[in-house]
Design a protein around this nucleic acid. Structure first.
Lengths: 328, 328
DNA sequence: ATGAAAGCGCTAACAG
DNA sequence: CTGTTAGCGCTTTCAT
């Protein structure tokens, strides 16, 4: 007897000798029920271990109490933290969260968004391209949308993102204030909007010095190669800001391999504050992204929007915060 | 015009001049439809940008095409990877995944499980206590369940877990084979079944040497203190296996601070193979857990079970695999 | 304080 | 090849 047939509200009503209406109302308290009836019904509910079918409820209410989270890869710590933040605000409000990793494939992305239209009351999406076309399906379905980590222009959706340019500037400024004179940047060799913004910010403070900006793969090895390249310059840098922590850690090892002291001979700062940043030696100084906060905020925005269709779209930007450790 | 009213199958039928049945069938291909009608209907669907209401479908079909994933904290890399693995197998099958972090609270855990009964076709749960009582709600609801990472006894659910004891033994054996003679263990000071199993396995190979097993908080500092304690022994160890990588990394730094060479003076092996393991110096030798595989397998088991209620409960156990790097 | 009955949007007998 | 009709399990008018 693997699955005793689901007991429905009708069964409860029958056994309690009342109408389904009444059962419904003892559950919702949306209209008075005599104490006697209520007790009787509750007893039966207990006895039958009745649980209302959420699906049927959602269908009637035209509200699923569910939101979707669409990310390229939930395994990426930034998205993981954001997912958790989203749940932090959603769970207390009685919402569930469907999460989907798309690997950045526009096809699945679109397909998922289509489905979310009827499965969710809102969706937060991140890692989408620069174009609004990607999110057209959700826009069309009319459900609230918040875009995470990309500053998409226009449209009836909320945006929560990093102040990437400002953070790039802040990293460079920090180094400069510390007395470093020749500050380099190891960036991504992919076309990455975030990376580009960080570089732009860096340029805002150090000016345009092409030979000091090198493009590398975003990996330990990339960081390694990056310092190698940089140290061959006739006038090598005394500090490097790296597009993220993985590259920065690679750079630190590259420097140490080259016999350079970090930070005495070469200072290194990263971005993101991944878990490993505090575990390497020297511990990495980095610009931390409030990823969990991003998620939380996205959730709040979504909830507001779900409850007030008319609210004007908002844009919230989080500055990165400098975590000063030992590498710079 | 924030939300143009959802267009339903009735609207399509009306505008196409056919019955809803026909529309339904051009969508499902569950019965023949003349090419002319099909074309006409498709055109209208396109024109109206009609999308079937998944909720209504689920309700009729008594199948939600959704499974639940219940974990203590999605932010924990083991669970993140498992979540991804789960999606790896679920997405191609057309399933969505609702993920919930419970922070290990039995109350929310129970509440979530209750709801899943009607929202999901199956659930995978992990990080539950040793008792079957925790999962009673799902068991009662009759939907398929797979328990991840804990070897709960009995019941009609599948289990996928680590061979923790065997892995503990393997770690110790590896060290012994390398010629280390006095092997210690830094374990958790919490009551943690996994930790206990790893210690048991270690004991299986080195025997019972109480002074060599120390309990510490699971943190960098714990690892630090662990080595400190151990090195004060009249006969200090020449190798340590740590309950996980964070502790192991702490131990490595503890050893270096004490002027010990790793692995010459003190070898260290961890568990889990977290991202940082490959980023510290010396790079950490560790017993890797196939967490993504766990999730994948859980998904397969769930799918099988959803499609065949009668299938006997299964138990799949993954051995850890040794990642040999520089710390041992 | 309580019921009867109409649907939410869809699928699947059952009938042509 | 196509349509009519009865629900899935619930909430909510509208009555009483």
């Amino acid at each position: 007897m693997a699955r005793r047939d689901r007991v429905g509200i009708t069964d409860v009503a029958a056994k309690a000798g009342v109408s389904v209406t009444t059962v419904s109302h003892v559950l919702s308290s949306r209209r008075p029920v005599s104490e006697a009836t209520r007790a009787k019904v509750m007893a039966i509910i207990e006895e039958l271990d009745y649980r209302p079918n959420e699906l049927a409820r959602s269908m009637r209410a035209r509200r699923t109490n569910t939101v979707g989270l669409v990310v390229p890869d939930i395994t990426n710590p930034f998205y993981t933290a954001a997912a958790r933040g989203l749940q932090d605000t959603l769970a207390p409000a009685g919402y569930h969260c469907i999460v989907t990793s798309t690997d950045g494939d526009p096809g699945t992305e679109r397909e998922v968004l289509r489905q979310m239209g009827t499965r969710a009351d809102g969706v937060v999406i991140s890692g989408v391209g620069k174009t609004t076309a990607d999110i057209q399906p959700v826009l069309d379905s009319g459900i609230p949308l918040v875009v995470l980590g990309a500053d998409l222009p226009g449209g009836r959706f909320d945006v929560v993102t990093n102040a990437d340019r400002e953070s790039g500037a802040a990293a460079a400024q920090y180094l400069r204030d510390k007395g470093y004179r020749r500050i380099a940047f190891i960036t991504s060799d992919d076309d990455d909007a975030t990376a580009q913004l960080r570089v732009d910010g860096y340029r805002d403070v150090v000016g345009d010095t092409p030979e000091l900006v090198v493009e590398e793969s975003v990996s330990l090895e990339g960081g390694n190669r990056g310092v190698a390249t940089l140290m061959e310059l006739s006038e090598p840098p005394d500090a490097i800001v790296c597009v993220n922590d993985v590259v920065a850690i690679g750079a630190v090892y590259g420097a140490k391999d080259a016999g350079l002291g970090v930070p005495e001979d070469l200072a290194v700062v990263g971005f993101d504050d991944i878990e490993a940043a505090a575990m390497v030696s020297p511990r990495l100084t980095t610009m931390a992204t409030a990823s969990r906060e991003h998620g939380k905020t996205a959730g709040e925005l979504l909830l507001q929007r779900i409850n007030d269709e008319k609210r004007e779209p908002q844009r919230v930007v989080f500055p990165a915060t400098l975590i000063e450790r030992d590498s710079a």
